[in-house]
């Protein structure tokens, strides 16, 4: 990389830090939520093994809804890196 002045360096550092923070903090919520969903689905499956098929499909659906905030932060991170 060729030599850059201070303003460019600060701009690049801000971009990198911002994208990292957006993705890292934004992934906490979906992580906790999907963990909860998985734990309770496991509980339900252990209690009623004959319902395994129905519980698995509903678990995947709930996962897809719970991870949407993580997907928003992924979008923001992409916007910061590639579009700013």
């Amino acid at each position: 990389m060729d030599k850059m002045d201070l303003a460019q360096a600060i701009y690049l550092a801000g971009k990198a830090i911002g994208a990292g923070l957006a993705m890292g903090i934004g992934a906490i919520g979906p992580g906790v939520g999907e963990g909860n969903i998985g734990a309770h689905a496991m509980d339900a499956m252990a209690r009623q093994p004959e319902m395994m098929g129905a519980i698995t499909t509903r678990m995947l659906l709930a996962d897809a809804v719970a991870e949407s905030t993580g997907i928003y932060s992924l979008l923001i991170a992409f916007l910061i890196i590639f579009a700013l």
Binding site: A64, V65, S68, I71, Y72, L74, L75, F78
Partner: peptide, 16 residues
């Protein structure tokens, strides 16, 4: 907004 951004983020983010 959340309805459309969820699908968009998953498909476009997956492609990227």
């Amino acid at each position: 907004i959340s309805h459309s951004l969820r699908l968009f983020g998953n498909i476009a983010g997956g492609a990227i």
